[in-house]
Each structure stands twice: as structure tokens, then as C-alpha cells.
Design a protein around this nucleic acid. Sequence first.
DNA 1: TTTTGATTACACAGACCTGTGTACTTAGGC
DNA 2: GCCTAAGTACACAGGTCTGTGTAATCAAAA
Lengths: 197, 197
Amino acid sequence: MAPPPAPQTMKERILQTADKLFYLQGIRAIGVDTIAAEIGISKRTLYNHFPSKDALIAAYLERRFVHARPSDKPPAEQILATFDSLERRFAAKDFRGCPFVNAVAELGPSDRAVKKIAIAFKESRRLWFRDRLTELGVADADALATQLVLLVDGSIAQDLVRDDPAMARAAKEAATVLLRNAGVDVGEPVKRRRAPK
Amino acid sequence: MAPPPAPQTMKERILQTADKLFYLQGIRAIGVDTIAAEIGISKRTLYNHFPSKDALIAAYLERRFVHARPSDKPPAEQILATFDSLERRFAAKDFRGCPFVNAVAELGPSDRAVKKIAIAFKESRRLWFRDRLTELGVADADALATQLVLLVDGSIAQDLVRDDPAMARAAKEAATVLLRNAGVDVGEPVKRRRAPK
DNA sequence: TTTTGATTACACAGACCTGTGTACTTAGGC
DNA sequence: GCCTAAGTACACAGGTCTGTGTAATCAAAA
């Protein structure tokens, strides 16, 4: 597994840098000059690849919209693993919330383009949960999927302001209760019963 | 119940207008000129009451930090009523997420003052839940309180991007399950059993 | 070698922002 | 009537931002 090679195209280099700066410091806080300077290119080159900052913002968000990879693990495990992954990301020092929620919060309700992609992203995550729950035979997979994304986004928002990765564990525990309540087998029920030999 | 009289002091008028504009359109999106123009005062007057925009932002957030009013209703009802109130606020067209989370998202991680008040607010909400749960005799009130704030913030974040007040109902249903799982009496268990009588 | 396309350096327009300086007006309290 | 405090009008400094215009450079393809 070689480390990823230096990005090939200019466009990709711009996007990588924009991603880093937009995400870590905020879209409004970063000017195109800053991005160009960070790469060491002229502002003119940047504008030769993206017609406007808005276009760059849209491309940044679209690039963040990565679909979940398929997995052959049992669905219940996949669902709970989501929260473990979340906890790892919270613990990383370069985590700064959900880029889509942040963009909507930053750019305001008037920016329809940003809102549209944010909605699409949130819905894709919800559907991912729903499909796993359907595989598990959960009756109202739709409703439970919504509840699970609430826990995900809630823990992200809480971690954003508190910097506390434990929020992911709390979300996982709540998710476990909700899953068990829906009839999904998720290991031993809380803490009752002694270790079964 | 007379409608609230026109605000008395200049400072209060400034704060009311700043609140409206900052909250609805974003802190970075609104300049002090805009606020002054909206009230019909000169920018100089505004700066006579607040030494800087940062001070105005801080005052805006502090004014948003209203503590929950005491209630004599049963604790379980109070907790669940939180989500009904949330749903009503989502349905209002002037709802635009949590001002504290938005401010942190907008102003970035470097703004310590904003982050500090945001943390204080989030913790005060969590402690409110914890106190209600303690009244109910819930064993691990701390952990459950954290899970409940995740549902609150999750539904706020989801509604911010999706404009869907149903997120509050989903949060309430999840909260009901979590409460029942902790031994709190919250009415009939889901949908089993026919109408009694 | 010549041509073509990408990139650079750099200036600049036009907008907006925060914050200040200054002189004028206005309204009450004494 | 006079004095003080608050507000007004307005210009402006100094900064940032997006986006463009232009001429020079460089490298690789033809």
C-alpha cells in the first residue's frame, strides 16, 4: 500500500487544498488568494479551472459526497460500526463537524445550490441505514433510520462545540437501545445477567 | 396580555435587531451598517453602545442564552414536551437552527469566546435533562441526558438542512423508547394492546 | 523550430467591511 | 436660558474580498 501519489491534475490539487482550508477554517473565512498561495499557484490559474468561488464551493461539497463502501459484515454490525468510525473521527484533531451542515449554516438559507447537495447527502445516509434495517427485517425501517441519523448528526453537532469524542459512544449506546427495541439482536441486553460461562 | 411594548433602551433595540439579522442571515453575512440602517440609527450610535462587532456578537449570544422556566408538570412530561416545543419551532418559518452551533460553525474553532458560551449553553441543556431524570429516579441520569441532547441537536441539524419538522417527532419517538428502557413510565408501550376500556 | 496552451506576475476595479474623527443638531434637566 | 448627553450626518482610513486584464514565460507537441 503505497501512500497516495502526489495529485496529478491541477484541478485535483486545487480541490484538495480547497477542501482542507474550507473544511478546517470555514468557507467564508478562506479567500481564493489563500488557496492559490497555499498551493503556490497564481490566482489566475485557479480561475482558469473554476469560473467562480461558488463553483469551487460546489465542487468541494460534491467531492465530499463519498458513498459508503459495500461491506459483507452483518447489517447490525455495520450500523454500530458507524458510530465507532464516528468516534475515531471525533478523536482526530482535524475533525470539524459535518461539512454539509457547516456549509448550510455558513452560507445561509438563500444558497439553494448548497442546500440541495446537503439535503441529498443527508438523505443518502438515511437510506443507507434504512437498507441495513430492511435487511434485518425491521418493520418500520424508515422511521428507525431517521432516528439513527438524528443520533449521528446530534453527536457531530455536540462534538463540534464540545470536542468530546464520548458523544459518539453515547450515540452508539442510544442506537443499541433503539435497535434492540426494534427486535434486532445486538448482543447482551445492557448489563443484566452474569457472564455466561 | 398586551403585546410587548416597543423596546425602551437604545441598547435593547440594537440587540433585538442584531438578533434578528444575525440569526436569520448569519453573523458574517450581516455588517454593522446593515444593523444600524435597519433600526434607522447611525453607525456611530451603534459603536457608542458596543465597542466592536465582536462585543455585539457576544451580547447577541448571551441574550440567546435563556434558561428554561421552572415547571410544575411531571418530569417525564416536561422532557417529552421539549420535543413538541421543538416541533413548533421547526414549523415556524423563521427557524434556522441552533444559534450557538451556527456561530461555532461560522466563526470557526479559533474564536474561543464564542465556543465558550456555546459549550456553556449545551451543558446547561444537558444538565436540565439530567435533573429531570434524577427526579424520575433514573439510575444513570447523566448518560441518558447526554443521549437526549443528541436527539435534540440531531433533529435541529436535520431540520436546518431539510426543513422538516417531522424530525422533532422522530426525536420524540426515539426519546420515548430510551426513557421506557430506563424504566420511566411514558404511557402505553408503542402500539401493542387494544384501546383499554 | 515553430506553435500552442498552460501558467505566472502583477496591477487593478469595484465592492464591502470595521472602526474612527468631526462638526452639527436635538432634547431634557437645572 | 443654558448646559450636557445622546444622536446624526458624513467622510474616510485601511483592510479584505472576488474577479479581470495583460504581457511575459515556459514546456511540450507538431
